[in-house]
Nucleic acid binder design. Structure first.
Lengths: 187, 187
DNA sequence: TTAGTATGTAAATTCGGATTTACTTATGTG
DNA sequence: CACATAAGTAAATCCGAATTTACATACTAA
């Protein structure tokens, strides 16, 4: 029949699988507990290939974080919906799956990954955010938004505290939404 | 002369030295980079003694965090000074020295230390804080305060971003102070 | 003073993960 | 087809830290 032959070996696909698995794993456990073995089991790939394609665990982490960091979801929305838009992303119920915020926090567990993460956050989040907010105070406001979002997220997924999850959760979400929106409104 | 004999061997003192050094080291570098060798060099003590006196690195970390966590500085101040009081602690210029916030963040780098930290934070910070704030919304407000403070701190010391350090720093401090105070005022 | 225990030390052991190595198998090109 | 090389594999190696061990010395109480 017209079935096209499928490559059993495909560097592109393998590389892609590793990166994808890495994003998932690095999003869901601390760097030190995210083993290459885990990642490669999920990717269906031999461990040695990580070094062939990415050089090291550290560089793989950099790729994974870099590929996941994206501010465009937040700044492609009408300003009056900003708070809601961010809150929506930050409160959604998927502890599994690719998520740059945990990666960011986990990056702080090692100086090398931390330094790398700081650079990425500056270039990819803070700077574009600041210019979207605009004005002389743009960068300061962007920083405030990041602080609130990160703090919220820390106690929601990294160090889970009751109020961020239980019945009080609704109140927390409302607060998050409103306090972010206020920052934009007063920018 | 009347010089009293000084003990060369003193379990109490040794234990204390280890704990103190541990608090310093765990406050200034990620858990995985805070080696027992480092801690014991600072404490002037043999590495094996950590296990004799504390059982393991993990338990030593628990002791260190537990001993450093203390909410009383914040809740022993008149309510109208709350924002200023917290901001003062969180913006002081001593990256060195004992500091529970970094330990808390670094605790998230390992599931065991993370779980332990979550329990400690609940008992020693969130709960007393909530009852100090009082009322039905006490716990929610306490959680909001913690989120802001932690987020701020994260980008000030753990993943250092420009606005938290440079000329814009004053603006950030003012924002921190005011947004915390507002939470208390409206409680 | 001396025996027994508390304290301290140096070195051996363990351990688990990342990285390297030497090798095998597929792919597609002339 | 046969060869060169890209892609993949299994196992060996490395590595650094925590922990254990076996031993040495100080302290105290009888």
């Amino acid at each position: 029949m017209g079935d096209t032959k499928i490559r059993q070996r495909d560097a592109q696909r393998t590389r892609h699988n590793i990166l994808q698995a890495a994003q998932t794993v690095f999003s869901t456990r601390p760097y030190s507990e995210a083993s290459l073995k885990d990642i490669c089991r999920i990717a269906g790939v031999n461990v040695a290939l990580v070094n062939r394609y990415f050089g090291s665990k550290e560089l793989l982490f950099e790729m994974a974080l870099s590929a996941a960091l994206d501010v465009s979801i937040f700044v492609s929305v009408p300003r009056q919906d900003f708070g809601r838009a961010v809150a929506k992303v930050f409160t959604q119920n998927e502890p599994e799956g690719i998520n740059p915020l945990p990666m960011l926090v986990y990056a702080s567990a090692q100086s090398s990954t931390r330094d790398m993460a700081v650079n990425l956050v500056n270039e990819r989040i803070l700077a574009p955010f600041a210019s979207w907010v605009g004005g002389k105070r743009g960068q300061v406001i962007a920083a405030q938004i990041m602080a609130i979002a990160t703090g919220y997220f820390t106690y929601r997924l990294i160090l889970p505290l009751e109020p961020f999850e239980s019945k009080q959760r609704k109140a927390m979400e409302t607060w998050l939404t409103e306090s972010l929106q206020v920052l934009i409104d007063n920018a």
